[in-house]
Design a protein around this nucleic acid. Sequence first.
RNA 1: GGGCAAUUAGCUCAGUUGGUUAGAGCGCCACAUUGACAUUGUGGAGGUCACAAGUUCGAAUCUUGUAUUGCCCACCA
Length: 874
Amino acid sequence: MKEIAKAYEASQFEDEIYKKWEKSGAFSGGAKANSKKTPFSIMMPPPNATGTLHLGHATMLALEDTMIRYKRMAGFDALWIPGTDHAAIATQSVVEKKLQSEGIKNPREELGREKLLAEIRKFVEKSQGTIRNQVKKMGSSCDWTREKYTFSDEMNESVNELFKMMYDDGLIYRGGRIVNWDPKMQTTVADDEIEYVEEKAEFYTFKYGPFEISTSRPETKFGDKYVVMHPDDKRYKKFKHGDTFECEWINGNITATIIKDKAVDPKFGTGVMTITPWHDLTDFEISQRHDLDKEQVIGYDGKLLEIAGEFAGMKISDARPKIVAKLAEKGLLVKVDENYIHNTAKSYRGQGQIEPQIMEQWFVDVNKKVVDWKGKKLSVKEVLQDTVKTGMINIIPENSEKIYFHWIDNLRDWCISRQIWWGHRIPVFHKNGEMKVSVTSPGKDWEQDPDTLDTWFSSGLWTFSTLGWPKKTEDLMRFTPSDVLETGYDILFFWVARMILMSTYALRKSGFSEEKSIPFKNVYLHGLIRDIHGKKMSKSRPETCIDPLDMIAKYGTDAVRLSLMIGSTPGNDMRLYEEKIGGYRNFVNKIWNGSRFVMMNLDENSSLDPKTFSRADKWILTRLNEIIKKVTKSLDNYQFSEAGTTIYDFFWGDYCDWYVEMSKVKKNSAVLKHVLETSLKLMHPFMPFVTEAVWADLNSTLLITESWPELNKKFNFESESEELERIIEVVTAIRSLRAESKVDATKKIHAIIYAHEDLKLVEEKSEIIKRLANLGELEISKDGEKIDKAISTFVKDIEIYLPLADLIDFEVEKIRIQKEIENLENFLKSLQTKLNNPGFVKNAKPEVIEQEENKEREASQKIEKLKIQLTNLQ
RNA sequence: GGGCAAUUAGCUCAGUUGGUUAGAGCGCCACAUUGACAUUGUGGAGGUCACAAGUUCGAAUCUUGUAUUGCCCACCA
């Protein structure tokens, strides 16, 4: 006989159970050939191979594992492909910092490309192992035999292949454009990867010929020789477009040209500005429109160039005050506003100050119509819109779709080249000014472009490259499109939209139908996890951070999973705090202890025979059917919080607190076991470890491969349970009465109910009552006599309340019926109004009208019935 | 400036087609506890469902407006 632990120690079970699952092959969905089951697949959003698992990952893993386990039990070939992401900029930045802390001041110069890449590779390999273990810690039932990495050789092949396809289609082009240059990381940064930080800065107004112009960036103004104003601005009517004038400027005289352009806001400042096309997007666009000269002022290293004259070679921060001083000396400084608030652009990754620059970069043209889509040629932008608009892809929560469309409307060409080393190298080769795009190197004397691709370019292929594309593998044919993409709403644009773009383009090109070329059918966006004050958890404030691994060590994986899923609805942020996890740990323990108790009370001879069912048995079985229905429906509708709460309430409130307690008086072992087993199945997707641990003591099979419970029609005893519900109502009334009269006798209320209903049926019970009534006073002082504990407690209450119960019963029933009649009559009235409305009759579908008529009939029948009941009572 | 949301008990949050008396967990108060479980049980207090108007027999739920909070996008020299 095993020693029975008082509490469930998660750490003693979890690793062992995970190994058992892995060994059983349960994770490899659809691995069997010729499977007739319906496929269900999820590609895990790959965590960065840089660090450790955070709460965002934990949430994602918990939700996806719940879906996968549910579908697996429900008879699908459930495939969940795990992987890691090389996260180009983030990883290189981390490793460079690490090397710097080890004394290598400038890793890129000192080590060179190959050696630095080797360092990064070494680092990634190590942290991949860490991530893998942490994913396992969460209980993730993903198929490790199909694990993928965004920077593997196969992935590289897929990326190169796609690049070439897009290039050949003219979708990828090279051009000089304003890009967001990060002088710190020496690379470009995508628009989406920029954060604007509000800063107080000095805002200068200078004299510029006959005008006054304002700027917060005097250091860019050296080359400014165009002065721009709105064409309709009356103040400057006398100046004509194209007019020139001489004026004194920073380094001597210049010739300025007047340009009229609508981009200027006449209400801002003086309504006049000078432009710096090389370092500002708006200015660049103006200069493109009027075909103006563009001059570089700031170098890629963030220092001023020759054009700055005496200031050349200086850093911006050093040069700015000196330039202002010089202009002031010349009498050109009009005023300084020191409280000017403006937004400065910072890199989302490295927090470096962004300096717009014109550079030759690679772009994806989002407006070129090259995709064969439903009989037309569409641009990738149009396909992005169509997939969601037509419901081919369903985004949860629904309102995210609006955000998605809004983003697409503002979408510009996507700059895909990056000047860092860690990442997929652009498959472009150069030889003596010649250029060739090729999947593999065209020859020894060809040199590959030094730039790499934006990490989202390769991540965009994730859903189909993980299945083997461009090879038409069995997996690709079977599992595309995947069923759900589950991720945080913060990367809807970064990633989700790009996957749709890449997948539809690549798979249409490979001959897949429109329906088969989308990356996924559903997108489920979870919210961000915040701390108890609703603040974002950030690494810079470690006290706000909750480490999922610490929590797992302390409370167990199941508790962590539940606390991340319950109370979280799609698209909404959720606050997490340790007490919440502790609460769910208590639930895990409740399952363990409840199950222990049931196991100790099992009777092997008992069988599930409706003839032996007491009312309590019928009630719990009916309830169980309701719960199966509700949990299944919630899971099918991605309502994980709802499903989790439902089963939590049922197991703790109905099963443990009511039914198991009742069974201490009178038990049906078979029902006890049946309900426990079914509950374990229902709970398994949410809390796989504890349910599997308990299951192991009940059965020799593995719970993970058991099938999902179905409704058992034989166990629907609604008419009987209705009666029981009524008794519960009576007892509720007793409770409130007891509170009023302050009778100081509390006992488990379910015992009363049980006795109450059974007293009418079982004569032996009244024997017991009599016996105890003979004792006279039933009030027993705390240190009083010892009487038979097995019966005394509940009988005491019954003795006191039973006479009252009948009275209350009568009154409660009367009020209840009256109220119900009233409600039904109102309901009926509203139905009749609706049915008499000619507009409704004319426009509604016939089946809707029929439905309403049925409702009407049912309601009036019920009213009749209730009225008879009421008369009988009076 | 444009857009998206949120506002329900002291705290954190559910509440999906409008329907009996608005729920849970935590916290608080009282009581119980030789029990499978103090990681427990029972009961209680605590809500003008942000505010206002409207639709309806009936509104936390639908409409409009107001307030507050949060987020996203764009960005002006």
